[in-house]
């Protein structure tokens, strides 16, 4: 069996992703996805699990410090046996470092004093050009000026949409030439994570809207224990 078609069966068993922002739910449930991913061989399954643990928000421990996350990434990424997975992890964590810098600057913080304050090749560049709108990285990261502008405008949803779209399009570009190999499985799983994240935002927005409506409807109404009974 040729390596480029190692996962023909697995990938054919996965329903296609539609467009990211029009999705109302993931193409298959998390349980079903995990079930299908059991077809991966042991090493690839380990690689995918490590990769998702490193880069997906749903997998992050909210109590971990930045330093702990960075140390874990620096320790685990070089051990990933698949170069595609390593490059992708590097790219996502570099992107996250740049967003972190934008948010810090937006809060009025000074440039980081530590040399290794973030992940990847741009940390020193960011420190040196802290006051430039896009840290002079417009060419390497064309999404950065727009992200900075939206953040300055306080458009949080716009920033989130831009970042999700950037990752989605990056994965789409990487998909060229990978149809039934392990890279295609990685791309599918990461896109599934993006859809899951976006659709969960809808859920949260719906809950917030529901709370607002309840508050509006109950405005001026006093609930006493007798009335509730």
């Amino acid at each position: 069996m040729t390596d480029s078609h190692r996962y023909a069966m697995l990938l054919s068993a996965l329903p296609a992703h539609g467009a990211l922002f029009t999705a109302r739910q993931t193409p298959l449930s998390r349980i079903r996805l995990e079930q299908r991913l059991t077809q991966l061989d042991a090493e690839d399954a380990r690689t995918l699990r490590t990769l998702r643990t490193l880069i997906e928000w749903a997998e992050q421990d909210p109590h971990s410090s930045d330093q702990a996350v960075l140390e874990r990434a620096r320790r685990q990424i070089p051990t990933l046996p698949d170069p595609f997975a390593r490059d992708l992890a590097d790219w996502r964590l570099e992107m996250r470092t740049l967003i972190c810098a934008l948010r810090r600057r937006h809060r009025g913080e000074p440039p980081p004093s530590e040399r290794r304050w973030g992940y990847g090749r741009w940390t020193e560049q960011v420190r040196r050009h802290w006051n430039e709108p896009a840290f002079r990285l417009e060419r390497a990261c064309p999404w950065l000026p727009e992200a900075a502008r939206r953040l300055d405008q306080g458009d949080a949803i716009g920033v989130e949409r831009l970042l999700l779209r950037t990752v989605w399009e990056h994965l789409e570009r990487l998909h060229d030439g990978h149809h039934f190999d392990f890279a295609a499985v990685i791309i599918y799983a990461l896109r599934w994570d993006l859809v899951a994240r976006w659709t969960s935002y809808h859920h949260e927005r719906a809950l917030a809207r529901f709370d607002d409506l309840i508050e509006t409807a109950l405005d001026g109404v006093e609930l006493t224990p007798e009335a509730a009974a």
Binding site: A8, M9, F180
Partner: peptide, 10 residues
């Protein structure tokens, strides 16, 4: 074998 695996997946 390649096409058959894709068929089973589908």
């Amino acid at each position: 074998a390649i096409a058959g695996q894709a068929a089973i997946g589908a």
